[in-house]
Design a protein around this nucleic acid. Structure first.
Lengths: 351, 351
DNA sequence: GTGAAAGCGCTAACAT
DNA sequence: ATGTTAGCGCTTTCAC
């Protein structure tokens, strides 16, 4: 360990050079692991580095190359388990390759998403992992294209003509949910979602509807889609139930929808699965400890992160070829919130 | 909007300078908003900037100064609402001051925490917001001290002799919880926590115990503290209940503890609040939509983030004086998971 | 008012 | 095998 009681100024490569009695270029070579340096000099450099506590300044070092060893990550939010795990994974993978991940939250705003992208462009990041607020056609992706940035799109995307995309296989997962619900006897199902993320929600809805109708042509599928926000969804859902609609199951296409559905059930005094069944897209830790445990579609975060980074680095290293759209398979956890219709009181009533 | 179909190389300050017919120094001044530039020249610079789509390279610009306009944030994890909100807030506040936040997850490892800090030191960040894995006495804080880094410690800390600290007022919140539980008639209460974070857990435990004993000297308070990890806690809790212990309420000192408690209740078929009451430190969105809703201590994330950044920037700007330890008041949400003892079946069995 | 020159800390091409 | 030189893109004296 180096001893430096006062760190007025950090040791620079020149300090090391003069202490070791060599030039800065030689120090640079030694640090880079070039083998053509005389062992004796290399040793002197190592000693000087040790004594001065020298460390390369990665940002200064990046100054010379066109791209810096930095990967930008833009997530719609940091508050959910899904994106939290995603950032953690991405960070890990970036570091494994000697890069630093700089993550930013667009806070579900496309305008902010674009601003962050501009900043990352200013920073000359080597690449960007963008989880767009809406879909692949936002201003952020346009900006990336217009400026020739290297990037991968994840999560709320299906495919793109300029960037590789990686997301959960929404359609297949939804088909599986449909299979389960139909098998349990449900013939009146409400699907709730958010219209804003057109492509993803559409895939989830279609995947569900197609399979459900195929297995049970008589099934009734209602859909409540809020345009951009969660509170309107709550209002629409409330209105839907107020009209007297009584589906036997609800399939929520996104996490917040599951929370809204649960809170509306509470309001009406309905319990899962006796009064109504519930499945949600997106799992969360709490869903397995509540009573009833909530059934959910588990997105393969690690696979998405892994393949996204793989694709990104392939492009950073010059990989050519048309964009690739990956869909990662999900798991379905059918927990207690799903039952068969008609097994419970199935009536309104107090809490 | 600037038009640049191919972005071989981004426009540099020299490109702007030559296009505007002035020197790079003048461009720099214009960009910095210096007023001593002839208006006509300033205009030419603005035009050139516009036409070339020029943007300052913030990293290159920081090269000259000792500290960069970057704030580092180190959180124990990104997966929980608490730290997700914290990062979001910190990011926002940093940006408001023209800084970029670079967040990293120590993944609950002190070794990794230190590594991240080393990297941030290499990056010459202006300051660090550290939410330590354990407490203020870890290797990371030592490293910061030894290297004269500017920083603030938050969350799992009480006070420090070198850095300002900001955290939730654990003791006061716990006292309030004690007041509520005692008032409801509970006289046998189990407290669960994690020993690793000595200071914080101690404050929560002591705050609870002191007030509970003062209000009801006959109260029995059991404590199950796991050393470092959550799974051992689950095992200890299971063993505790297996011995036949039947407290009427559980107070969990941290979020994961609340989840573990809930899952152990499930295992034994106990329902809140009839069979047992539950309050947890740390709120989460799902807690208000489950049935029963789970009572929780809400940490004031915004205040913590706000005061942390305030303190940090004060130091960055040269503020002197002894370290300040702030405690931010919490709110208690007494929800349905808390009832009075003896109102339910209070027997084992069930699903 | 403005620009030339000197760097921030590093690396890479080119000599030697 | 090593050092010299010339930058990366910017800012900041300090003369003019």
């Amino acid at each position: 360990m180096a001893h430096r009681q006062d760190q007025q100024r950090r040791a620079s490569i020149h300090d090391v050079a003069s202490r070791a009695g060599v030039s800065a270029a030689t120090v640079s070579k030694v640090m880079a692991g070039v083998t053509t340096v005389k062992p004796e000099n290399a040793q002197r450099v190592f000693d000087a580095v040790e004594q001065l506590g020298y460390r390369i300044d990665p940002l200064a070092s990046d100054m010379r190359r066109a791209k810096r060893r930095i990967i930008g990550a833009i997530m719609p939010e940091f508050e959910s388990e899904f994106f939290g795990q995603m950032v953690t994974q991405l960070e890990s993978l970036a570091e494994q390759r000697g890069y630093t991940l700089v993550a930013a939250s667009s806070r579900e705003s496309e305008a902010r998403e674009k601003e962050i992208l501009v900043r990352m462009h200013d920073w000359r990041v080597a690449g960007v992992v963008l989880a767009p607020v809406r879909n692949e056609h936002g201003p952020a992706a346009d900006f990336m294209k217009a400026n020739g940035m290297t990037g991968v799109l994840i999560d709320r995307v299906l495919s793109d003509d300029a960037f590789d995309t990686v997301s959960a296989d929404s359609a297949a997962a939804s088909a599986e949910v449909a299979r389960e619900l139909i098998a349990k006897g449900h013939r009146h199902i409400l699907v709730v979602g958010l219209g804003e993320q057109a492509a993803t929600m559409r895939a989830r809805l279609d995947g569900f509807r197609t399979t459900a109708l195929k297995l049970a042509p008589d099934v009734r599928i209602d859909v409540v889609l809020a345009e951009t926000d969660v509170e309107p969804l709550r209002a629409q859902l409330r209105e839907y139930f107020a009209k007297g609609e009584r589906p036997t199951a609800v399939y929520s296409l996104f996490l917040k929808g599951t929370l809204v559905a649960l809170s509306e059930f509470r309001r009406r005094g309905w319990h899962c699965p006796n009064d109504i069944s519930l499945v949600g897209f997106d799992d969360a830790e709490w869903m397995q400890v509540t009573w009833p445990a909530i059934a959910a579609v588990v997105q393969p975060v690690r696979q998405i992160a892994g393949h996204a980074m793989e694709a990104l680095f392939a492009r950073i290293e010059g990989g050519e070829g048309p964009p690739i759209a990956r869909l990662e398979p999900c798991r379905i956890l059918m927990r207690e919130s799903v039952g068969s219709p008609g097994n419970g009181p199935h009536s309104g009533g107090g809490q």
